[in-house]
Simulated scan of single mutants.
Amino acid sequence: MQEPAVPHRTSPSRLAAPVAVLALTLTACGTGGGEDTDARSPGVPAAPARTASGGDVAAGKAVTGKVAEGPGAVTYEVVARKVDVGTEAEAAEAVADAADAEGRVPAVAHLEYTHRGGPALTEGSEVHDAAAVFADGQRGGILVGAPDDAPGCEDPYTVESWKQGESHVFCETYLVPADATSVEVHWSEEDGEPWVWKFPRR
């Protein structure tokens, strides 16, 4: 059952809480063992993207899917790069009522989207709408109002003139149980089954 969205503070001091001092960066599990195999140097292409719809995705692997955008359908290559997990104290600071975050921590998923086909975009994209964060197989509670431009993240609503070959990193912030053993990043194209990147907590 999906958890309800968690209300947030409106004061400026709240905006930095979920992402400014995140304590743990998780690396996706996969055939590469425990290494962070998803990082790459500029100019080095991503691992070949999978094109079937839905299923588990290994570390560093990208998938492709189409999204209906304003000017037409766009094909994207998508990969979950990492998840930053914070503390219970940060979760309590991020909501209006600290009791709503009891036993939970913020999890910020970093997803990289590359425009691979279709028309160039001249305004914000819808590609990030299908992303979500789960913990131990259960959907987390979305942290409404979390900043889109946290360190390493871009605000999807300010990206313009997105052309083929260009990439952007958008982030999703959810609250998940503090004792979760793994965090999952889900993304799917319209009417498709979700792709799942798993990030074990050590």
Rank of each mutant, 00 (worst) to 15 (best):
G118I: 12
V105D: 06
E102C: 00
L111V: 14
L111C: 09
V78A: 02
E112M: 06
E77K: 12
V85S: 03
E90L: 08
V85F: 12
A68C: 02
A89G: 04
A94F: 07
E112S: 02
A94N: 06
H115G: 02
S125A: 10
A98G: 05
E126L: 03
G124I: 02
V108P: 00
A94K: 07
E77R: 15
E77I: 09
G117T: 09
L121H: 04
V83P: 02
A99Y: 01
T87P: 00
A120Q: 15
A120F: 09
G70T: 14
V95R: 10
G70R: 11
E88A: 14
G118P: 11
E123F: 11
A109M: 01
P106N: 07
D97L: 04
V83N: 06
G117H: 10
H110V: 00
E69R: 07
E69S: 08
L121F: 07
E102I: 00
A92R: 13
V83S: 04
T114E: 07
V78T: 03
E93G: 08
E77G: 15
H115N: 05
A101L: 08
G124A: 12
A120R: 15
G117F: 06
E88K: 13
A89E: 12
G70E: 02
H128T: 04
L111Y: 08
G124N: 10
V127F: 05
A91S: 03
E77L: 12
L121R: 13
P71H: 11
D97E: 08
T122C: 00
T122K: 00
A101T: 06
A107V: 05
A73C: 05
A73V: 13
E77Q: 15
G124C: 06
P106W: 10
V108D: 10
A98V: 09
V67A: 12
R104G: 01
E69L: 04
Y76L: 13
E69I: 09
A89C: 07
A73S: 14
R81V: 00
L111D: 10
K82L: 03
G70S: 12
R116K: 15
E88I: 07
A96L: 13
S125M: 05
R116N: 05
A107N: 05
V85W: 13
E88W: 11
V127W: 04
A96M: 11
G72L: 02
L121C: 11
E69D: 07
H128C: 02
V95I: 09
A80P: 01
D97V: 10
G103N: 06
D97M: 04
G117P: 10
A89F: 08
R104C: 03
A120E: 15
A89W: 07
A99D: 05
G70A: 13
E112L: 02
P106Q: 09
E69P: 02
V78Q: 03
A80H: 01
R116P: 00
R81I: 00
T114R: 14
A73F: 03
G118K: 11
V67F: 10
E77N: 07
A92Q: 13
V79E: 15
A101H: 10
V79L: 13
G117E: 14
P119R: 11
V79G: 08
G70C: 06
A73P: 12
V67D: 07
H110E: 02
E123W: 11
V79I: 12
E77Y: 05
Y113K: 01
G86L: 08
A120P: 08
P119T: 11
V105S: 08
E102H: 02
P71A: 14
A109F: 01
A98W: 06
P71Y: 12
E126Y: 04
